[in-house]
Every structure is written in structure tokens, then in C-alpha cells.
Simulated scan of single mutants.
Amino acid sequence: MTEPHNPPFRFRLRVRYGECDAQGVVFNARYADFVDIAVNEYIRTLFGDYQHLLDQDLDIQVVSLTVNWKAPAQFDDVLEARIKAGRLGNTSFTLHLEFYRHGDDRLIADADITYVLIQPSVMAKTAIPDNIREQLSQGAPGVLISHAGESA
């Protein structure tokens, strides 16, 4: 996923104490939150303010989320989500995320999230417009956004 000729969009977050379970590692359900937070930053990077989609009578709804855990993350770790587009269908698209621990680049988890594009005014799915398809396909290579407060 980290080919030098097409680096992924990257988003960093810091694991908070309350996100850890009794074993002292990130509780599995928190990864859905991590995916959501990272994808929101990705969508904002691609399309600007989320309201921009809504103003076009477009919105996205999750239809599938799968997470595969590879190694534990702990309190105060900085995780880096790397995001690229996966399958782009007629009305749906999948984003692939890989979570690495910043500092040692250890793969912690990967996830695939599939959205369907809807038209909120009629609450029905709709075809992905060409301009949005192109933005999703192109992605945001090399962009880094951090909410972690880590040292450069």
C-alpha cells in the first residue's frame, strides 16, 4: 500500500486511555471509531467541507466494515491510518485502511469500509457522479493530517 510512486493519504491519532480495555490495549470496537475519524478527514480532503456533498443532495452510508487485527496498540501510541480507494462500483465504493504505529511502522490493523452513495431527498442510492468517481480514484496521495500532537 505504500508504493513510493503513489503514497497514500495518512491520518495520525493518539490512543487515549479511555480507548483501552482491561488488557491495556485498544478495545476492538474502538477501531470502528478510528476508521470513521480517519475517513472523515479523507473525505474532507477530497471534497472540502462535508456540506459540499450534502449541497449536491448526496451523502454516504456505511454498508460494510471489516477489521483485521495484526498487533496490539496501547495507550499513548500514535497510530497512522493510510487510506486508498478500493473497489469503485456503480453506487458504492470501498476504502482500504492500514493502521501503523508511528515510530516503528508496525502494522496494527487493516480495514475495508464500503459506502453506498445516496440521495438524501429521496433516501435512495444513486450512481456515483463522474467527478466524485475521479476524486475517489485519484485519492489524496502524500497528504498527511495529524491530530496526534507528535513531534515531527
Rank of each mutant, 00 (worst) to 15 (best):
Q23W: 15
R82P: 00
W69Q: 08
G86M: 03
T91G: 07
Y100A: 01
P120K: 10
D130P: 08
H5Y: 15
L46G: 10
M1D: 10
L117Y: 15
I83F: 03
M123Y: 14
Q74A: 11
V143G: 00
A152P: 06
R30I: 11
E41I: 05
Y50M: 12
E80F: 05
W69R: 09
A127M: 04
Y100N: 02
R133K: 14
F27Q: 10
A148S: 09
N28I: 07
I43K: 08
S151F: 15
A73N: 04
R10D: 05
D104Y: 13
L46I: 08
V63F: 15
S146V: 05
S146E: 09
I60A: 09
Q51N: 01
E150N: 06
V78G: 01
I60K: 11
S151L: 15
P120D: 11
Q74K: 14
D36S: 03
P8V: 06
G142D: 04
F9V: 12
D59E: 12
S151A: 15
D76I: 09
V143N: 00
T94Y: 15
G103T: 08
D112W: 15
R12E: 08
V25R: 06
L95C: 00
G18E: 10
S92P: 00
D55L: 12
S137F: 09
F93P: 00
S121I: 07
R10P: 07
N28V: 09
C20K: 06
A22T: 04
A148N: 03
L144R: 04
A71V: 01
E3S: 13
Y115P: 05
D49Y: 08
D77N: 06
R30N: 12
A22I: 03
P72D: 01
P8R: 02
V35N: 02
E3T: 14
I43N: 07
Q138S: 05
F11H: 06
Q23S: 13
M123Q: 15
A111P: 07
I60W: 14
L53H: 07
P8H: 03
N68C: 05
E98F: 10
L79T: 02
I118M: 05
Q61H: 13
